[in-house]
């Protein structure tokens, strides 16, 4: 009913309005997003040019290269690193978000801003800080008086990713936990449930949307990252982002680079679909 009442005033004016407001942004999105992505996807079936670029001759070679164990292995490594990072971020982020939500009101905002603040500083600077801490003659080794090899390991990459994206886990978690009615937990406790049962049966299911959003926010930038594996992993551990970067900037194989990028997007789309399916079932 309401929508009919809204549609009443001069529909020509409305259509003009829609055109005036929507067309500039949409044109921009079409030209600089959809066309480039379409182009990238079309490159996956063409051959590489000798000096970069592309030769418009059909081939399925890029896809057969993609399923080569070497490249599948890289995808597997990237999935594993991103998944481990996401899991740790959840285990650290959940209690943090929970405790912030319990703070008195005037402290809440401050505590939350303090979580986000490092996220707003230059990403490369944050990675650099870890090189400084962990490298051979680094701060950690000189404090401990040890000579541990802390850089250039898979764990170092996970630490760097965790450091960079933890705030993206805490924020959505906090948003859902904050909205939770404390009476639900009290009722559960009054009815004799232990703290753990209350958490498992009341708090966790109700905050699941936040958990999923947070996991997605951490997983997506971790999975496609190439700077952190390069700087903290010393190019020893190759992730799919490094591979794509190299195809475009050093190997000059744009079609294969595009194919890898398509694979990256495909993995993320599958995850999104799983997430929305799980959200609908929950």
């Amino acid at each position: 009913m309401k929508s009919e009442a809204k549609a009443r005033p001069a529909s020509r004016g409305r259509r003009l309005g829609a055109f005036v407001f929507l067309s500039p942004g949409l044109t921009y999105l079409i030209v600089l997003l959809l066309v480039p992505l379409g182009l990238m996807v079309s490159y996956t079936v063409f051959q590489r040019g000798r000096f970069g670029g592309v030769v418009y001759e059909f081939t399925t070679e890029n896809f057969s290269r993609l399923v080569d164990p070497l490249y599948l292995g890289v995808l597997g490594t990237s999935l594993r690193i991103a998944a481990v990072t996401t899991l740790i971020a959840l285990l650290v982020g959940y209690p943090t978000a929970y405790l912030i939500a319990q703070l008195p009101n005037r402290w809440k905002t401050a505590a939350l801003v303090a979580i986000v603040l490092p996220f707003w500083t230059n990403f490369l600077i944050r990675v650099y800080a870890w090189i400084m801490l962990l490298s051979g003659p680094g701060v950690v080794n000189s404090l401990l008086g040890t000579k541990l090899e802390l850089l250039y390991k898979e764990g170092t990459i996970v630490a760097g990713l965790l450091y960079s994206y933890l705030p993206l886990m805490v924020l959505p978690l906090y948003a859902t936990i904050e909205k939770l009615d404390p009476q639900l937990r009290e009722a559960s406790a009054n009815l004799g449930a232990s703290a753990f049962t209350t958490f498992r049966k009341v708090t966790l299911p109700l905050t699941l949307p936040g958990v999923m959003t947070g996991c997605l926010f951490v997983f997506v930038p971790s999975f496609g990252n190439f700077v952190i594996p390069e700087m903290l992993g010393g190019n020893k551990t190759v992730m799919v982002g490094n591979l794509i970067r190299n195809q475009f900037l050093s190997a000059r194989d744009w079609p294969f680079g595009s194919t890898l990028a398509l694979a990256l997007v495909a993995v993320l789309v599958v995850l999104l679909l799983v997430q929305s399916w799980a959200a609908r079932r929950a």
């Binding site: 480039p36 992505l37 990238m40 930038p221 496609g224 982002g241 990028a261 990256l264 997007v265």
Partner: peptide
């Protein structure tokens, strides 16, 4: 992912 936007462009 920013990387996908970057190579698309």
């Amino acid at each position: 992912p920013d990387l996908v936007l970057a190579i698309g462009l």
